[in-house]
């Protein structure tokens, strides 16, 4: 497979909720080793696309291919084993587990079967999985929170723990749902540095983000969704100049309800 062969491809994917067409005949490709942004106004279907890729919902029509393998019918808990890990728009850490244990949840897909499940991670002090999780926390600069209850930690720290958890699955494709939302500028910068560091290894990242500065600084490809359809794609520069995108984001020429756009400037 060549380096330009897309790692993820969605072919004519559609998803309806009741009568609402959230994703409509969507075709998109994510290039291997490239950081791609998925942007669009609120309600454009970005998170739904993530949920379809990870199998939270089945698609109504179309196919999802990971590295050429059709995973459309693969059940959701097996997809992470194919190399797709994700973070969540609202932090979804396990409140009753410590930081370290939350990170170890990310290793689960590499510990399937009875022997994997019975790994004595909290029994043997130098268990290799436990050590690996600790090392990841050290790398991320989060080791001081190792035994803390996650619910009490600041928002930015929780976001970074979620990122470490996703990385523990050793994914080929990392899906990040609004990683910078709710972070202050310093935290955003730290996150950006962390992401650039992990991408050196050739990890492919698909990120939903509203912060266009963040997207411009991090991503090489941008895909724009509106009403569940792809309306543009290209480099951040192209997208910024694209009149259709300007229309959607600035709203001036076409009469669109303003509230759909207000969040995009945030």
């Amino acid at each position: 497979m060549s380096a330009t062969h897309p790692i993820l491809r969605l072919e004519s994917v559609s998803k309806h909720f009741g009568g609402l067409r959230v994703v409509e005949d969507l075709n998109l490709a994510v290039r291997r080793g490239v950081r791609t942004a998925l942007i669009g106004p609120n309600g454009a279907g970005k998170t739904t696309v993530f949920n379809l890729i990870t199998g939270v919902f089945p698609v109504d029509a179309g196919r999802i291919l990971l590295d050429g393998v059709d995973i459309t019918a693969t059940s959701s808990h097996l997809r992470i084993g194919h190399g797709i890990a994700r973070s969540f728009q609202n932090i979804r850490l396990m409140p009753h587990l410590s930081t370290l244990e939350n990170v170890m949840v990310g290793q689960h897909c590499r510990n399937r079967g009875v022997r994997g499940v019975l790994q004595p991670v909290n029994l043997v002090p130098r268990n290799r999985w436990r050590e690996a999780a600790r090392a990841a926390l050290v790398d991320a600069g989060l080791i001081e929170y190792e035994r803390s209850t996650v619910g009490n930690l600041p928002y930015g720290v929780q976001k970074r723990i979620e990122l470490v958890r996703a990385l523990m699955a050793q994914p080929r494709l990392l899906l990040l749902d609004e990683p910078a939302a709710g972070l202050n500028p310093a935290e955003t910068e730290a996150l950006q540095a962390q992401l650039e560091k992990i991408c050196i290894g050739g990890l492919t990242v698909l990120v939903v983000e509203h912060d266009m500065h963040f997207v411009g600084a991090l991503c090489e490809d941008v895909i724009v969704l509106d009403f569940g359809r792809k309306i543009a794609e290209g480099s951040p520069e192209d997208i910024r100049r694209n009149p259709l995108v300007q229309e959607i984001y600035l709203g001036a020429p076409v009469a669109q309800p303003m509230e759909r756009h207000s969040a995009c400037s945030a």
Binding site: M94, H96, E101, V105, H108, N111, V117, Q119, V121, W129
Partner: peptide, 11 residues
């Protein structure tokens, strides 16, 4: 519960 089982069940 000291194994991965405990973490998974809590999750």
């Amino acid at each position: 519960f000291a194994t991965r089982f405990g973490i998974a069940v809590t999750a």
